[in-house]
């Protein structure tokens, strides 16, 4: 029982983290029609910025805020200098150009921070276990991730659906010429959206950093997961991304936790212990393949153009 609740919460926490990453990706993809492979690099930069700023300031929250601002700024600079020129180009051009950016960021990080990973230590008040149910404790930090991510998801939903900027963003997604003709500065809007996406990726990176080590290439595996999520959810749909992210986070975590024992029922224990991790990693891709075969546009197609 304890294990089940704990793994369930772990799955939720991982899913919400994936949502932060996928939300930025799906916004940029749905609105600017830009395939940004370098989104994972922004996630990595968020983690590196956090590790640096927390070490500087000696305060976890302050360092995290600074890192968030830095990632936002980095995203805006990236959009203005490079990615802006890719709008309207072929998707393949996006893939190639942002693939180049991944190489660049990985190497820049190696040059600045060195090849060894960094650690981001947690402050004491976040490491204590918190009782959530009678007799069941859960680490405060993971709980904090869940709360922050849920808050961000709520803000994002309200921002996109209930504010003027959000309305403009949605309008820009369905017809960019028309909104430009109505006198809206579409370039600035796009820059803002990209910056927002970058900040979300940075937030995911800096929150994940204390759990895993901060290292080069940390953005690449998780980027593929984020792509899987937005494809399952339907490109451009934040609601789809949210549901798919929770789903994928659960499958990944629960698969890793319980599959080895399940497989041991049918296989020898050595075969099970090697097959299980591979199988649980495969499950997500299998899910995506099934979704795409059954519903080629994803589960929640956003804007039918």
């Amino acid at each position: 029982m304890l294990l089940v609740v704990e793994q369930f919460l772990n799955g939720l926490q991982f899913g919400l983290l994936l949502f932060l990453l996928a939300a930025g990706l799906t916004l940029v993809f749905g609105i600017m029609d830009l395939v940004n492979l370098a989104h994972g690099s922004l996630y990595m930069m968020g983690a590196y910025f956090a590790a640096t700023f927390v070490a500087w300031t000696g305060n976890f929250v302050l360092g995290a805020m600074l890192a968030l601002g830095a990632t936002l700024l980095l995203g805006i600079v990236l959009e203005v200098t490079a990615l802006r020129h890719l709008y309207g180009r072929d998707h393949l051009d996006h893939v190639l150009a942002t693939f180049g950016l991944i190489l660049f960021f990985n190497e820049a990080v190696r040059l600045i921070w060195g090849p060894a990973g960094l650690a981001l230590p947690l402050p004491g008040w976040l490491t204590v276990p918190v009782p959530i149910l009678p007799g069941i404790h859960y680490p405060a930090y993971r709980l904090a991730i869940i709360i922050v991510a849920l808050l961000v998801a709520l803000l994002l939903y309200l921002g996109v659906m209930r504010t003027r900027i959000g309305m403009l963003i949605r309008a820009g997604a369905s017809n960019r010429e028309m909104i430009g003709a109505l006198g809206i500065n579409i370039k600035l809007l796009y820059t803002l959206v990209f910056g927002l996406g970058a900040a979300l990726a940075g937030l995911a990176g800096l929150m994940q950093a204390p759990i895993l080590t901060v290292q080069i290439g940390m953005g690449e595996n998780i980027l593929i997961l984020a792509f899987v999520i937005i494809v399952i959810g339907g490109i451009g749909s934040i609601r789809g991304a949210f549901l798919a992210a929770i789903f994928v986070g659960m499958i990944d975590t629960l698969g890793r936790a319980f599959l080895p024992n399940l497989l041991r029922q049918v296989l020898s224990s050595t075969a099970a212990s090697t097959a299980a991790p591979a199988l649980s990693s495969m499950l997500i891709y299998l899910l995506m393949a099934i979704v795409l075969v059954v519903r080629p546009e994803g589960l929640f197609p956003a804007n039918r153009r």
């Binding site: 395939v35 998707h91 792509f227 899987v228 494809v231 490109i235 891709y285 995506m288 393949a289 994803g298």
Partner: peptide, 10 residues
């Protein structure tokens, strides 16, 4: 894009 992604998934 879905084709790009499904081939990647496989």
């Amino acid at each position: 894009v879905y084709f790009i992604m499904i081939t990647l998934a496989f």
